[in-house]
Amino acid sequence: MIKMSEPQIKVKVHQNVGTVSIHRDEKRNALTRAMVFDLIQAFRDLHGEKKVRAIVLTGGGGAFCSGLCLEEMHEIVQEDDNQDRWHQDTTSLAELLQQMLQFPKPIIAAVNGPAMGFGAGLALASDIVIASPEARFGFPEPKRGIVSGLCTPLLHFRIGGSHTARLLLTGESINADRALQIGLVSEIVPNNNLWARGVDLTKQIAQSAPQAIQLTKKQLNETVGEQLEMHIALGAAASATSRTTDSAKEGLAAFVEKREPEWP
């Protein structure tokens, strides 16, 4: 008998809570191209679940999401003509972020560990972010010769220009306490209570009229954040362009070979 592999994106519905969890523990939940498509499908499936009032997005194991799979990106960067692949990939990533922003129900990111690069972007595209003390956030893309174009507008929208510039230009990672100080997360919760706290927030949300919640979210993300969608699309183009450079080729090779990059 052939043993079926466990799904890397798991969706559960319990009462009025939908849970989407990322499971690729051996790679700290780094997202492959297939997993990105599965996340998009997961939110599509939950969109039609009328009894679901909010979504809790979290990671399995000790990480939330360490970003995109750099080994997979390294394979693509070796191809002679990869512009179309990069365009397709960044378009899919932009679609996922925009889908989350336009999702009619609140999304609560329960960040149980490192959320790096696009993994941090998933938290930024959520409406409420709660974190365990083990959580860390960072945007190390420039250290790999690429840019965090998709996350930049969301980061600026959530925490402002000064903190955004520092995080993006230094590539440093910050702990949960610092993330709380700058407004990246709303509260810190012990890891074993993290999902339960997300459920508590869902219960609070469920006390309000669903249509009112939907319209409030729409106002926040499409009126106050009226240029987010355009800036994410521009960021996708910038990300795609950066992945075609010699710097990206060297940065990703250095990561795979576990050495310091020698920038061209």
Rank of each mutant, 00 (worst) to 15 (best):
M1S: 15
I2T: 13
K3P: 06
E6C: 01
K10D: 03
V13I: 14
Q15Y: 10
V17W: 00
G18Y: 01
T19V: 15
K27R: 12
T32R: 12
R33T: 13
M35K: 01
I40M: 10
Q41R: 13
R44W: 09
D45H: 10
H47Y: 13
G48F: 14
E49I: 03
E49R: 15
V52A: 10
V52K: 11
V52I: 12
R53Q: 04
A54T: 01
A54G: 14
I55P: 08
L57N: 02
G60L: 05
G60D: 14
G61H: 04
A63D: 10
A63K: 05
A63H: 13
C65P: 09
S66E: 13
G67E: 02
L68E: 04
L70Q: 07
E71A: 06
M73G: 05
E75W: 00
I76C: 01
Q78Y: 01
D80S: 12
D80W: 10
D84Y: 08
D84T: 12
W86G: 05
Q88P: 03
D89F: 14
S92D: 10
Q98D: 02
M100S: 00
L101G: 09
P104G: 05
P104C: 11
N112K: 08
P114E: 03
P114L: 04
M116V: 15
M116H: 10
F118Q: 00
F118I: 08
A120Y: 02
S132I: 00
P133G: 08
A135C: 06
R136Y: 06
G138N: 12
F139V: 04
P140E: 09
P142I: 05
P142Y: 11
P142H: 06
P142G: 08
R144Q: 13
S148K: 03
S148N: 14
P153V: 01
P153Y: 04
L155N: 07
R158S: 10
I159G: 04
G160N: 08
G161Y: 05
S162Q: 14
A165D: 15
R166P: 00
L168Y: 12
L168T: 07
L169C: 13
T170S: 15
T170I: 06
T170F: 08
E172W: 01
S173G: 12
N175V: 05
N175T: 11
A176T: 06
D177P: 01
Q181N: 10
Q181F: 01
Q181C: 06
G183A: 07
N192E: 13
N193F: 04
A196G: 03
D200E: 14
T202G: 03
T202I: 05
K203I: 00
A206F: 02
Q207S: 11
S208C: 09
Q211M: 05
Q214P: 03
L215W: 04
T216Q: 07
K218N: 09
V224A: 08
G225Q: 07
Q227G: 07
L228P: 04
H231C: 13
H231Y: 04
H231A: 15
I232Y: 09
L234F: 00
A236F: 07
A237V: 12
A237R: 08
A238Y: 01
A240E: 14
R243A: 14
R243S: 11
T244P: 01
A254Y: 12
V256L: 01
V256F: 06
K258L: 13
K258M: 12
R259Y: 03
P264R: 02
P264K: 02
